[in-house]
């Protein structure tokens, strides 16, 4: 009997883990694989209870089919021992699962002291990351492998939620408050980051990539001059690179001048007449672009009054001039 039972559970275990393999993304670190083992246990427990309940139901349906219109059925009103058993056993299983989940949850909640801190800003439809060294990136979180990393997160406008499926962690990002998330990524590589709290039109476009680099590569990435990647490019080409890195293209269409659903098109903007929500209007020039980049709310194009406001994106002077050059370059 024991042999059959152990064979049965091993099949169950492999089928559950195969099922879970197919289900869960590749575990990025030890914590994630421990969450997976909890998930396997849950899967097996659910599989067994489903087999018992649904199997039992189907078995009874066939065994006790109505044979004739005058069938007599026994008057069984209750059975205390059976009822106690099937209340106590689920209770015990639920408590085991609760404690197991609680232990993992508490571990994921308290970050170690020496964690490497990175700041995360959620904004309508992109993630900005700021490192202590002053380096800022958009939609690209670069972290060292094997070292605990603590994300200190807030939002610039509405609720968002930072979710890394590979590490099985998620935390809502709330405007006006800081929330934190910590992890220790082990496997090097690139992981997908989602926004899982509904935040408006492009909620599904708010994706970021997390790159896990070895320690040396990370130090080198951190210290290298952010301008290095722009060497040898014309000003307009640099503008184009900044525009895609800062996810401006998520809302603005740079090679059409028709008004998009979310934001105006910017093809050969210079020299075009813009009328604004407050009734004023002006011919777009370099100064207008610079002001709109620094203070997005100052001059809102009439068609977008009341719509989702353009967020303030951290740009330094060079990047602003490059963007203006890039927009200017569209004309020829």
């Amino acid at each position: 009997m024991i042999k059959k039972l152990s064979a049965f559970t091993s099949i169950l275990f492999t089928s559950a883990s195969a099922f879970a393999e197919y289900g869960m993304p590749q575990a990025g670190n030890n914590y994630a694989s421990r969450v997976d083992s909890l998930y396997y246990f849950l899967l097996i427990a659910s599989l067994i209870s489903c087999i018992l309940v649904i199997g039992g139901m189907i078995f009874f349906v066939f065994k006790y089919r109505r044979k004739s219109e005058f069938d007599q059925t026994p008057y069984i009103s209750h059975n205390n021992t059976l009822e106690f058993l099937w209340s106590f056993i689920p209770f015990v299983i639920f408590m085991i699962v609760f404690v197991w989940g609680f232990l993992l949850f508490r571990e994921a909640e308290t970050a170690p002291k020496n964690a490497f801190e990175i700041h995360v800003y959620g904004r309508q439809w992109a993630w900005d990351f700021a490192y202590k060294s002053g380096k800022t990136t958009t939609n690209e979180l670069v972290v060292p492998a094997g070292r605990p990393v603590k994300l200190i997160m807030t939002s610039k406008d509405v609720l968002h939620s930072f979710f890394i499926p590979a590490l099985r962690i998620k935390q809502d990002v709330i405007p006006g408050r800081y929330t934190s998330l910590w992890f220790e990524a082990e496997k090097k590589g690139e992981y997908q980051v989602f926004c899982t709290e509904y935040c408006g039109a492009e909620h599904s476009g708010m994706l970021a990539k997390m790159k896990v680099l070895s320690n040396e590569k990370f130090e080198e990435w951190l210290s290298d001059d952010p301008m290095k990647e722009y060497e040898g490019l014309s000003l307009a080409a640099r503008g184009e690179k900044v525009v895609s890195k800062k996810a401006c293209t998520a809302c603005h269409n740079f090679n059409a001048d028709v008004n998009g659903a979310i934001a105006p098109g910017l093809k050969n903007l210079i020299g075009k007449k813009r009328n604004f929500a407050d009734g004023s209007s002006m011919i777009a020039d370099r100064e207008y672009i610079r002001e709109s980049l620094k203070y997005p709310q100052k001059k809102v194009v009439a068609a977008y009054d009341g719509k989702a406001a353009m967020p303030l994106i951290p740009l330094n002077e060079d990047e602003i001039t490059w963007i203006i050059e890039y927009i200017k370059s569209d004309k020829d």
Binding site: L42, S46, C50, L104, P165, I169, T196
Partner: peptide, 18 residues
């Protein structure tokens, strides 16, 4: 049974809003 999975803290962190 999937409800119990979602009630488990560590699992819900992964499954929430998916």
């Amino acid at each position: 049974v999937t409800g119990i999975m979602l009630a488990t803290l560590a699992a819900d962190v992964h499954f929430h809003d998916t």
